[in-house]
Structure formats: C-alpha cells, structure tokens
Design a protein around this nucleic acid. Structure first.
Lengths: 121, 121
DNA sequence: GCACAAATGAAAATGATTTTCATTTCCATA
DNA sequence: TATGGAAATGAAAATCATTTTCATTTGTGC
C-alpha cells in the first residue's frame, strides 16, 4: 500500500482550491518533479482514506481533490468567457450545517457555484 | 438533434429512483426494446436539457438520472449508500442573487449540494 | 414516388481511472 | 557491509463510461 505522499500534499496546498489527479500530475511535471501518474492516483486515494483530502466530482465526472480544513470558497463563473471569481459562501455554510443536522448527516461537505454572464459578455 | 424519447422516460418511471445510462440501456434490452446505447445517451441528455430529468453522480463518477418534478431544488447526498434527499435552497437563492448583483452578472443560475454520511452509514 | 431533414445505432475514439507486473528503494537484521 | 523481503514506483495495458463519427434508416411534406 502506498503512503500519503508529501509531495502531492504540497502541490494541493499550492493549488489552493480543487485539483484533479491529472492536474496534479501535470503541475508536478511542469515543476520538474519526477512522478508517475499511477503514483499520483495512489497518493490521492491514500490521502482520501486518511481523511487528509476531500474528494468530489466535477460536472463532467472527473474527481477533484482538496485538502480538508483549508479555507474553502465558492465560485462565480461566467458562462460566456469562463472567467471565475472566488467568493465567500456566507449563508451557505450555515445552511449546509443546518440541513445536515436536520437529517442526521455526519462528516459533511458541500459545493455551491453560481454561473451566469459577466458584465463584459 | 434527438428528441426526448418517451420510451426512455417510461423506463425511468418504472425504475423508480435513479438509473445510469448503462442501466437504462440494459433494462430496455432485457425488456426486448430495440434501442442503441447511443440513443439512450442522447435521449437522456435531451431530457436533462428539457429539465424533465435530473442528473447527478455516483461516488464512482457514473452519471445517474431520474425524473424530477422540475421545481428547483438541491440535494443532500449520502457518500456511503448514495441515498439522496431533495432539500430546499432557502438562504442560497438569496445568496446567489446577491453575489451575482455585486459582480454585475446577469442570467444567473446556481448549483448547491451537500454530501456526507447518512444516519444509517 | 421523391427529396431532404432528423433520428438511429454500430463501431471507433476519447479520457479518466485501475490493474498488472517488473523494477527499484528502504530498512531491519545477520 | 551484505542480503532478503516488504513496500513503493511507474510504464504500459486494461477497463469502463461517455462521446464522436458516419453510414443507414425513418418520417414528413410536396
């Protein structure tokens, strides 16, 4: 079994928000780190098992990972040009917690994104 | 462009809850319906466009579909067993509107989902 | 019947993820 | 310092859902 790889953690830290396995791999390549795609996948799985990393899914089904506990934010995405603005969740955090409690859910995370046309488009 | 296929709708009705494209296909085969996998995918996409069908993702990334009332709602999804509860957005609707206005976005929609472990898992 | 657009589906392509398997790296102990 | 085995690694192949291609079929109005 492969161990949680500190180099992968480091990349996730620098990536800030979410990153897919493929993105982590590409980033490490670009930075001259020598690592195989297989190892990236195994490290991420291991990190998820250890609850160091959170996994969820993009709209297209690709798995995306982020460090747990790190401050998280949401996105305002332009349908026209793709510009993305990071925004605060505000009321959402409370909403998620309330809903989860109401239905007895534990170990809870959430996603929320807003999309529309930005002023330029 | 392919049209929303009533035979696919019918299968989703009989399936009750969620079904993946592959499952819909297998079900139709088993029932002697002559249909191609490609057509199943196209029909489901079309149904999603028309907001007749809801799509979300299994833990493994496979897309699953089900008929939905059409009313705008959000999901509370169990990471363990996949059980899904439809919940009200409440504060989110206002949050999305506020954020969009703040940045001058028009024509705005949003997604929000909560995931965690349900009481049984 | 005829032409033309839409629908269909088989097969190939795509892309993420997993598996296989041979090799390399670690590490404890002789 | 050897050495033997366990864990880690990664290249390449396999898997599997989904999409694309493209040739054929179906339906509809004239």
């Amino acid at each position: 079994m492969s161990r949680s790889n500190p180099r992968v953690v480091s990349v996730l830290e620098r990536a800030g928000g979410f990153a897919s396995a493929q993105e982590v791999y590409r980033l490490m390549q670009r930075e001259g780190e020598s690592i195989g795609l297989t190892t990236v996948y195994r490290s991420l799985q291991s990190l998820v098992n250890d609850k160091i990393v959170d996994v969820l899914r993009r709209e297209d089904g690709e798995a995306i990972y982020r460090l747990c506990g790190g401050a998280h934010h949401h996105h305002l995405v332009c349908k026209g040009c793709g510009e993305t603005i990071e925004i605060e969740g505000g009321a959402i955090e409370k909403w998620a917690k309330t809903m989860a409690e109401e239905f007895g859910f534990r170990d809870v995370g959430h996603t929320a994104e807003i999309f529309g046309l930005c002023p330029k488009c």
